[in-house]
Amino acid sequence: MTNEDLFIHTIAPVTHDLGGFKVHRTLPSKPRTMVGPFIFFDQMGPAILDAGTGIDVRPHPHINLATVTYLFAGAIDHRDSLGTNARIEPGAVNLMTAGHGIVHSERSPADERAHGPELSGIQTWLALPDGAEDIDPAFEHVTRDDLPVVEDECAKARVIMGSLWGRRAPTTTYADTVYADIQLAAGGAIPIDADAEERAIYVGVGEATLDGLTLEPMTLYVLRPGTAATLRSDSGARVMLCGGEAFATPRHVWWNFVSSSRDRINQAKEDWKAGRFPKVPGDDKEFIPIPEVPKTVSYP
């Protein structure tokens, strides 16, 4: 089987150095804006930050999307304008639904900073479907013990969202969504089924092949619809599988705003500049100003 048989897009990351750690971004990109509802895909780290420091993502707004935070290592304290104060740790999932507007911050926990906090994981955004973009904001934390795991001696897959390998995650979905964390030991293998309309594979750690084709690390491979394949690793790997239903209506991205309407994004820009978004209780002294030229944009 050739690359053309398996993949319709191969997306190399754009890497941003945020001081102390790097993020590797594959969505949105020039080749492709979305895979199913996934419209943003970032790998954070892996990194060990200097003792006494940590990540401090100051309060900032979102509209018309849901953020999904999933960690391999470390911890993050999440606060938002709903009054949520929640810590996420490896194997759990934080789902924050922005809807018509939410503000949140993400910071290293105080008790992690003294020894130098670890940071490694994936943050994604899901576009909300037509008719649900401006729903009420919400927050949901699903513990690692509540996410189903499929495993054998050399493969372990945690289903983060949707249904895979006969198991369904309890995490809320607004459109048909599949999302999984696959850990392969040396010699491990797992089938990648063809059920979802759109799917992508991403090797975060280690080495892996799909039907014998080598997958480059930190690269998003968008699979050809209807193609089933087998994921393998000779020496061990951590691989993310994501996708779901194809959106009929295009989505636009500008900074932290996602919408089917450019006018809605422009209104969100003005609302943030004018201070019309709600504050984050317990973290209302700082905020991220709107950029003149954002790093995250969609491509027509």
Rank of each mutant, 00 (worst) to 15 (best):
H78R: 11
E140W: 04
D42N: 09
D263E: 15
G20W: 11
Y299F: 15
A47H: 08
I39C: 15
A155E: 03
G74E: 06
H141T: 03
D56A: 12
I39A: 14
L231A: 10
V149Y: 02
I8W: 03
G187F: 05
P59A: 01
G101M: 06
S120V: 00
G19H: 05
G116M: 08
A86L: 12
F7N: 06
L231N: 12
A208L: 10
E151M: 08
G226C: 10
V205E: 15
M34Q: 11
S29H: 05
R87K: 12
A132G: 01
R232L: 03
F247Y: 15
H16Q: 14
L215F: 10
G83H: 14
D17E: 12
E292N: 11
R199A: 11
T219G: 13
A175E: 05
P37I: 06
N256L: 06
P129D: 09
T219S: 12
L241F: 02
F247G: 08
G206L: 10
Y299P: 01
A169H: 08
G91C: 07
T15P: 05
K273P: 01
I8S: 14
A274E: 11
A114Y: 00
T219P: 14
H24Q: 12
I88E: 04
D152I: 10
G243S: 07
E245V: 13
K295S: 11
L6T: 07
P225D: 12
A194G: 00
G91Q: 10
D284P: 04
E153I: 10
F41E: 03
Y70E: 02
G162C: 14
R251M: 13
D134T: 14
V23Q: 05
